[in-house]
Simulated scan of single mutants.
Amino acid sequence: MYDEKVRIEAREAMARGESLSAIGKRLGVSRSTLRDWRDNADREPRSSGCPRCTEQPMSAEYAHLLGWYLGDGCLSEHRRQVYALRIACDDKYPRLTDEVAAVIAAVHPTRPVHRTQAIGYTSVVSYWKHWPCLFPQQGSGPKHLRRIELAAWQQEIVAAQPELFVRGLFNSDGCRAANWATRSVGGVVKRYEYPRYQFSNESADIMGLCQEALTRLGVPWRMPRRNALSVARREGVARLDELVGPKA
């Protein structure tokens, strides 16, 4: 998983006469890989398709996938530095499983998207060496036990596509539900119901990202609990109905 900048730097160092051991230690590249680059300098490198390692544009759907990843996604390393991106999707909502698969395919269109059945949920999976380039938040342990911060380039994408980011967050860790309250009308207590959206997450950092995106969209929100965000005002619910809607 090396981008072209690393290859160029390594080849320039080899041209200056620097040893393979020194180059490998400085750049984190194996000696066998360096020898291959040296002995096959004229071979056209195969494009990784990674928009972070090349000049290729990032799909707008990345903001959508980032929301899903922060909610129900994870990265796991396999052999040869290949990573699996997994998004867990509740089997009660097959439409969302299809949506996640389509979003992953839009971000990384050159490889297949797999589905792995588990008890009560389906993991939508894609294998690629460059998933850590797109999700630098990856790390060991639950997200709420470590710092989650967006890189500057991710912040720009979320600022440009807050609608897709919010859709990913709410479709993973949110819901649209009916709430109720009572009101005294003419001395008679009446019960009435109203819809609201709720987003739940144990990570204060991810909750903050959701708050920022909603504020950017002009959607009013409040925090009834530390780990739960509520959107109940009529104009806020109407806006999220446009962007998210019920899961079923």
Rank of each mutant, 00 (worst) to 15 (best):
S76Y: 00
R79K: 05
R80I: 00
R80C: 03
Q81N: 13
V82F: 03
Y83L: 02
Y83I: 01
Y83E: 01
L85H: 00
R86V: 03
R86A: 12
I87K: 01
I87M: 03
C89V: 09
C89G: 02
C89I: 00
K92I: 05
K92N: 15
K92C: 12
K92M: 12
Y93S: 01
R95K: 10
R95E: 10
R95D: 10
R95A: 14
R95W: 02
L96R: 09
L96I: 09
T97N: 02
T97Q: 09
T97F: 01
T97D: 00
D98F: 00
D98N: 07
D98M: 02
D98R: 06
D98P: 00
E99G: 00
E99F: 03
E99C: 02
E99Q: 12
A102P: 04
A102D: 12
V103I: 12
V103D: 03
I104F: 04
A105I: 05
A105Q: 15
A106Q: 07
H108R: 15
H108Q: 15
T110P: 03
R111M: 06
P112A: 11
P112M: 11
V113E: 07
V113N: 08
H114Q: 14
R115W: 08
Q117E: 14
Q117W: 10
A118H: 15
I119D: 15
I119P: 04
G120D: 14
G120P: 11
T122G: 04
S123I: 10
V124R: 06
V124S: 07
S126L: 03
W128K: 07
W128S: 15
W128V: 08
K129L: 11
H130T: 10
W131G: 07
W131K: 08
P132E: 08
P132A: 09
P132N: 08
C133P: 03
L134W: 05
L134T: 08
L134N: 09
F135Q: 11
F135D: 11
P136Q: 10
Q138V: 14
S140H: 11
G141K: 09
G141S: 11
G141L: 09
P142L: 12
P142C: 13
K143E: 07
K143C: 05
K143F: 10
K143A: 15
H144L: 04
L145Y: 12
L145C: 13
L145E: 15
R146P: 06
R147C: 11
R147V: 09
R147N: 11
